[in-house]
Structures are given as C-alpha cells and as structure tokens.
Amino acid sequence: MGRPTGSRNRPSNMPAPRGLPAFPSRGRSTLLLARLLGAGRGFARARSGAGAVEFALLAVPFLLLLCVVVEAAMMTLSQQTLDSAVDRATRALRTGAFQDAADGNDPAGRLRQVMCGRAAVLFRCQDLKLDVMRGTSFASVRPAEPYDSQRKDWAPSFGSTFQCPLGGDIVALRAAVPVLRLFNALDFTRHPMGANSQLLVATAIFSTEPYSGKSCQ
C-alpha cells in the first residue's frame, strides 16, 4: 500500500497544488525578515540633514546673543575709557597742574588733549565736548545736561562753558562723546543720536587745592 501524498510530506521544491497560495520556506522567511529589520535600523540611523536643521534653529538666537555681548562690551569699554579721561582732567585741575601749563591757547582744547593725548581711548577725541563750572559749594554747582531728549542730539548750550578753577573752588566737570552703535536695536545709554551712535557721559565734582594766582590761559 502506497504512502499518502499529503502536503505535510511534499518536498519544499514541489509546486503547490492548483488553487493554494505558495508560501516561502522557513529559510526564505528568515532572510526576508532580517532584510526588513536591517532596512528599519538603517532608516532609524539615517541623520543626513539633521545637523543643518539643528544649526538653523540655533543659529539665529546664538547670533543675536553674540551681537548683544559685543555691543555691551564695546559700550562698557568706551565708558571706562571716558571715565579714565575725566579722572586725568580732574587730577590736572584739582592740583593746579593744568593752570601751570597754560600757554595762551583755548583751555577747553588743552584739557581735551590732557584727556586723550597720552592714553588709548575708544572714541574720537575731536567729538568730545566738555563743560567746566565752578562754585563755592557743592549745592551751587550744577553741570549742564549734554543731551536733548526731544531732538535726540546735543543740547545746544553744552560744551560752551569753561570757568577756570581757582584755589579752594568746587568744580564740576562733565564730558560727553558720541560712540558708534553697531546695532540699532540695542540702546544701553538711553541717549541715542543720529548716524548710528549713542552718547556717553561722565561727570566729576571735586574741590581744588588751595592754590592761588593761577590762570588757565
């Protein structure tokens, strides 16, 4: 009696009976599954273009922050050099050394040279304006305001007063200078001026030594 010819004992390379679907063998199924899994892992690892997208998302805020840092650093250094220049002028006026060096020239121009002549500054010294006022008490000395907030420009009267200090006077020295503003959106001094600049101001009020017989011209 012959063996039954069921599908269980049919060789794997024998075509399936008509009307039944042909299923792949176990070896082919394993290979196909491995290929699908490999393709999925490769797709998950694919990051081409991700760096460009991340850079585009972070570049704008990073550049804005960098601009703020650069602008703040330049303004801080410029203000520091202006304060140092006012300190040099204050020392010369307080001790009378400025009056001793009088040569008949404009005292405001000579004092500007004292402020800028022998030190590095981060502003144009020819743009510097200053007022020197003297009095008998600290309450009586009121330095002029250099900035006109309505016109956003120089106050018309600033830079025209130079009262030569005498011994024992109370003196107010105020200096102002416009500096370049790199980014118009930033305003650190609240004194914006034309031509992309901001006005820096430094003031010193002091008492001179009790010298006598000295003149600024």
Rank of each mutant, 00 (worst) to 15 (best):
S29A: 09
S29P: 03
T30Y: 10
L31T: 15
L33D: 13
R35Y: 03
R35E: 02
L36V: 15
G40D: 11
G40K: 08
R41I: 04
R41V: 07
G42Y: 09
G42W: 09
F43H: 15
F43Y: 12
A44L: 13
A44E: 01
R45W: 06
S48A: 11
S48H: 13
A50K: 12
A50W: 11
G51K: 01
E54K: 05
A56Q: 04
L57M: 06
L58S: 09
A59T: 04
A59L: 07
P61F: 07
P61G: 09
L63M: 15
L65R: 10
L65Y: 10
V68R: 07
V68L: 14
V68N: 13
V68I: 13
V70Y: 07
V70F: 09
A72S: 15
A72D: 13
A73N: 07
M74C: 07
M74E: 01
M75Y: 11
T76S: 08
T76C: 05
L77F: 04
L77E: 05
S78I: 01
V86R: 04
T90D: 06
R91Y: 02
A92I: 00
F98E: 01
F98G: 00
Q99T: 02
Q99F: 01
A102P: 05
D103A: 00
D103N: 04
D106S: 06
D106W: 02
D106A: 03
A108Q: 08
Q113K: 10
V114T: 01
C116M: 03
R118S: 02
V121D: 00
V121H: 04
L122E: 01
L122T: 01
R124P: 03
C125K: 08
Q126I: 01
Q126P: 08
D127M: 06
K129P: 10
L130E: 00
L130P: 01
D131W: 09
V132Q: 00
M133C: 05
M133V: 08
M133N: 05
M133T: 05
R134H: 00
R134E: 00
